[in-house]
Amino acid sequence: MRLQPSATGNFLHWRYVMTEIDLSPLRADLKKLFQEKLPNARIDYCLTCGLCASGCPASDIEGMDPRKFIRYLALGQDDLLRNTNWLYSCSICQRCEYACPMGINVGRFVYELKGMRPKELRPKNLQKSCELQKESNSTGIPNADFVWVVGDVLEETKANEPEWTDLTAPIDKVGAQFYLNQNAKEPTVEPEEMVFLWKILHAVGIDWTYSSEWWDGANYCLFSGDPKDWEYVTRKQAETVDALGCPTYINTE
């Protein structure tokens, strides 16, 4: 295994390129780990037919594509897999699995490997987004600010737009029919974007509510690859909605 300097000259982008592999013995520890953990991993089923690579927009980035990824797994090149930055080019979109004749979900192993990276070696602000997510929301604005922004923008709209004087943006309304989650980007950066949504819900006349806590529907802990954190945030969201007793959870995407 040798390092090949990348065109950009940026050290982080040097890629490990295989020159000679000794398969005696063949120790594919990562593959065995995944196979025990995920019963229908089917890594070995791969026919190396290249269909996944032909359908993957992230092919030939960092010298990697889904077929090579599975091949490195099968041939036990675990260090290369742990270190490749391709983990952050693959968006785990499952387009490879969609048409793969053997139905191999390459993204699932990318997710596992991302989770295996020690937190300090993960891309800085991706990990930070997850930490913030665990506290309250992905941008880290205090819950009080969220409540204040919603109220402020609501009042401003009602003041400037006569036909919307009875517009509402309820928060923590127990027993509402619909619970609405809210991506943290809008209240943090573009609060006025939320008004369109309220107007629509108002026009339809449905009984909905935000929650003042755990209101952010996003979950960057999925992207950072941490099942425990991802579960923690999702569980918090579920508890909030059940506490409000809303039968339907609307995702604003």
Binding site: I61, W86, S89, S91, G107, P123, N125, L126, S129, S224
Partner: peptide, 15 residues
Amino acid sequence: GGGGGALQAGFTENR
């Protein structure tokens, strides 16, 4: 190309 944390991970050229 934006999902899966790619926007936040900072590998802009790859993204």
